[in-house]
Design a protein around this nucleic acid. Structure first.
Lengths: 221, 221, 221, 221
DNA sequence: AATGAATGAGACTTCATTCAT
DNA sequence: TATGAATGAAGTCTCATTCAT
């Protein structure tokens, strides 16, 4: 039991996420996080070596919570169109959860800049996540062009870069929205529309687009 | 020598940009900014009411410095293809300058969270910048579809949203790059490639793409 | 060890009184008060919200410490002459203690001017103290005139005002005295002499003055 | 012309009096005093070596302005009763002016404590003023007892001390009064009443009290 | 003599971290 | 293991004073 009590650790991470999202990382006080978590300040330090370590863990936990990759994405036997639509659903499903905490991620940069150790851990993990996305995406695109479902002449690396850029860009802009602002581009449906448009550009002229419906599982996430 | 001495104000903003980019905003000390600017701490406070006010001014100044819209973009008599390529050049030209300071912008959100006044100023200005981009872009796309240069069936709002998302997404990811990382997607050329690909998808099947060469002027910016 | 640790709070107040009496309130540094109290600066702020709050508490504590009203003063069954002499003893007993810190009280006004909240607290408490004195004094004088021990024609409110003014005036002037200055008017004995003279003016012509000796208890206070 | 310009010096002293009375000495800023005086900060330092020197000069100037001794007080050929009443008028005439600035005097103690030089100048001058009062008063009382107008058995030094203490005490308490508080004891009339009562106690049983009417001159002061 | 922008020492206050209980 | 009072380094901001113009 090296992290002595998983439940308590979780409570602390949740409290940190909530407090940091409201006040910003630097403004968040360990006192308040402890209070919200219902533990004492000393206990915080039994689970996390420092405020910085707590933030890094909080940011990573937030990412993990919202990244749900549907099994269909990874199934090479499926039609690439189905796999791309499943990937869109995976991303759309996590979008609003991540967007809600995007400020948390932004704040992480403050820490990253002043601490080489945190920089390594945070950047490394984020790059790994992105790299995994990229790999997945390129393998689907490759399968698509080879099977003739997607246009053969597309530049896979450019399309993959654009795919990821579109998702990141929507996420980034979602952080600008005031709470009451209903701009539909920066919602889960906006993700479906934007990436759906991208997929349409990729299709060979003689194949129809396949649409999968959001399942209960993806809707939940 | 009246109080608003533009040179000294500029020196302070430049120093703040440099120091904040290195240390992060919260970690930056007013002492150090004053030292780098070559003025005393007291002088800082003659120009900016607080550290927070200095950050907001610094972020906005960084944006203004790098947003250069080429005249061709706004000339409605030109071929929409030319105008789109000019817009790409405008964005690509500013990309690396903005990317260099993108972390500063990310950090700004931390501060902005704890100050409604600063939040208003920063969000308002950024939204105004984006709104201008969006308007410009949609007007070009409209002209293109009406003149038949662009495919008539494209959904202008989706394409515009994707255009902006791609640019933002590339910018966002540029912040992840280690200094020595040579990933070519997150450079000015990456912007040209990604947005260029987007433009190609828009062209009516019977028109060729027009390419404009980077001029000396745009390369400088 | 709950937050309101009376011993530590007391140590801080004593230290503040000592430091402020020497350096003046504004010149006193929280650093030094903490040092003299033998606690850290942070602990100061666990007990008092600000330097200003510490001053107000210090001034009030100094007053409370030296205000000792002898029981005889309040006993309506005693001869009014005895009660007046007991009141003189109460005032004389506290005189030098208060005089020693009277400069602190004077300084308090400087602070009080810039803070309405502190002004209310300090003024209110001081007025309550004075009001109590006044009430006590007038009730004794009334009993005296009614019983015929004091001249029936005296104007009680004028005499009470003069009584209090004499005490305050001696206190005020005590603040002017250099440490080595032996002017006997501004000492406990000066208080006895001045107020004793006043009492003599009040006595009906056919009653002798009663003198009570300072007891060990009053001398201590 | 060693104080270079008497008018400007006066303007500065008036400004300092006004600003310090409102904000308290420590809170008063040289900036504001200069602004109120209509001169630059640099000019302040041409007339007064430091903020401390300015306060001392301000307090002394305020005292001088309000101390007006009627000629009758000093005329040894007059009936001592007339001279005492004239002294009461002198004190009553200056009372409200001084009371209005009593806080200024209180603030002086802050400075006095932290600066031996200021202490010497301020305490010395105030003691001289009081000493003069005391001398004057005792000489009148002596003349009165010798001429038989006052009771021969009075202890001149005790009576003089009480006289001064009453005046000081009333002044001190006047500082406690809220602006709207109408307590009549702490006004010019209160001074007349309190000291008038004292004089009555001194009169030989066979002489009536003499009352002088406030003249236009004393009412102005 | 007058100005006021610049200076920088110094004060208050905060808050991450520790450690005795 | 949990607690939370105590710590004290460090940061922002103020404002008396200076001095070049």
């Amino acid at each position: 039991m090296s992290p002595p009590n998983p439940t308590k650790r979780r409570r602390i991470l949740d409290a940190a996420r909530r407090v940091c999202s409201q006040s910003g990382y630097e403004a968040a006080r360990m006192d308040e996080i402890a209070h919200v978590a219902g533990v004492s300040k000393g206990t915080l330090y039994n689970f996390f070596a420092s405020k910085e370590a707590l933030l890094v863990a909080t940011v990573l936990a937030a990412h993990e919570d919202f990244v749900v990759v549907l099994p269909a994405v990874e199934d090479p036997t499926l039609d690439p169109r189905v796999r791309l639509e499943a990937l869109i659903e995976s991303l759309a499903g996590g979008f609003e959860g991540i967007a809600q905490h995007i400020l948390l991620t932004h704040q992480a940069w403050s820490v990253v800049l002043s601490s080489p150790a945190a920089r390594q851990e945070l950047l490394g993990t984020l790059r790994a996540i992105y790299s995994e996305y990229d790999k997945q995406l390129q393998s689907i695109l490759k399968a698509g062009t080879e099977s003739g479902v997607l246009r053969r002449e597309i530049d896979i690396s450019v399309v993959a870069a654009n795919w990821i850029a579109i998702y990141d860009g929507l996420l980034y802009r979602a952080g600008f929205q005031e709470d009451g602002d209903p701009n539909p581009s920066y919602t889960a449906d906006g993700v479906r529309r934007s990436l759906g448009w991208l997929v349409e550009q990729l299709l060979a002229s003689d194949v129809p687009r396949l649409k999968i419906e959001p399942t209960e599982e993806t809707a939940r996430a």
